[in-house]
Design a binder for these strands. Sequence first.
DNA 1: CGCGGATGTTTACGCCGTCAACATGATGAT
DNA 2: ATCATCATGTTGACGGCGTAAACATCCGCG
Lengths: 235, 235
Amino acid sequence: MEANSAATGRAAAGETRASGGKEGRYHHGDLRNALIRAAIELAAEGGPDAVVLRAAARKVGVSATAAYRHFEGQSDLLGAVKEYGQQRLVACMEAVGRASEGVGPQAARDRMMELGRGYVRFAREEPGLYRTAFCRKALGAVGITEEGGLADAEGEQPGWETRSFELLTETLDDAVTAGLITPERRPGAELSAWAMVHGVAMLFLDGPLDTLTDEESSYVIDRVLTDVLAGLMSP
Amino acid sequence: MEANSAATGRAAAGETRASGGKEGRYHHGDLRNALIRAAIELAAEGGPDAVVLRAAARKVGVSATAAYRHFEGQSDLLGAVKEYGQQRLVACMEAVGRASEGVGPQAARDRMMELGRGYVRFAREEPGLYRTAFCRKALGAVGITEEGGLADAEGEQPGWETRSFELLTETLDDAVTAGLITPERRPGAELSAWAMVHGVAMLFLDGPLDTLTDEESSYVIDRVLTDVLAGLMSP
DNA sequence: CGCGGATGTTTACGCCGTCAACATGATGAT
DNA sequence: ATCATCATGTTGACGGCGTAAACATCCGCG
């Protein structure tokens, strides 16, 4: 119930065990984070299906059932990896989103494009983590309010989806004040933008775009982002 | 290697066994299709992860290893279900796609909208099958040619993706000749359209739109489709 | 009629998630 | 310092999964 820091806690371990001392320490000292790190590696290499509890325990050098002292079960461990992947995605979006800081419509447009490029770039660079970030198993349910607003299921503090969504929302608001998008077209615009980037990312990972070169990909991404922006800007 | 009919063959079974005679017939007579039907039910209820070879065999009333006389393994059975789901999706798109038969730009627009609505409707009505249709396990690799054209990996006859893609391509060509979309914007338009519908479908299934009512969904779908069409129509 | 190949069964192996019972070691009260 | 307590990790076991090998049954063709 208290928010998982999902591997963001102070990492103490060097490789498999905690602080360098004896090998066979009965108590690990940082097992939870160590397991999460191992699970992240598994996810990065093989996607959500590769997040195998026993494999993570093996990687850390600990018995399988030890994980149950720190996670409710496999899907809970998977949930931790999911959260990590979500954070990474947000980071990737923020990194490029803050790149161009101008104020005109052109700058607003650039920010939208960069946000989308960052999203898809993460999906392409870390397909395993991206897939895990959207894996439907042990997910903190997120509902929707009026016109595109998101609401967490329980009173938990904003999860990634909220954060990622906020990022998009801010950029869209930005685009409105910059005169790029008309206020009438604003409500619900998140959905189109999100669906488009999510969709093209999926086509890259699971669909027919999985064998494109970086250059071809870049063309496709820009084309798709251009289209959705044009749609949002139309009269 | 010879094309799987994927449960489209003449169905002989009533419930679990083939033609009504004795219960304990040693030879089933139509095991392959029976297993596929069972697997389809599993997929429809629980998605691709629920397509468990042993469960399908159990449903049919046959030993687990019997399946290996008709499939290379679990992923092969899953592949058959996948193909079925793809056919169902195409059918759903064609059903509504042929609804409006006019010739003007408005009719072309209607057809585009209906095609998208049919796509998303299938995803919402049969989430398990839809997810299975896009499951990345034992997939017949599909590459991409020049500007959005698809090419099968081996010389196999067009799979669903090709057919589904053809449907979209035809409708887009239609939209061009009807004057709805300018020829300059035509190349690559499939990608935007496909990404958008796929993306919004995913948001409905795995994302934050999974709790919407039918009416809200309808609004969201139309909004998203309107946006992508506007994008494709923009100067 | 009889035999061979197709089809289905039994048995078994290793992997998985998970539970119960036990072992170990850190921690705080006496 | 001593020792009970409790968190943490281990062993062993169970059932379910995918799959391979060996065996059983039956259909169809000579």
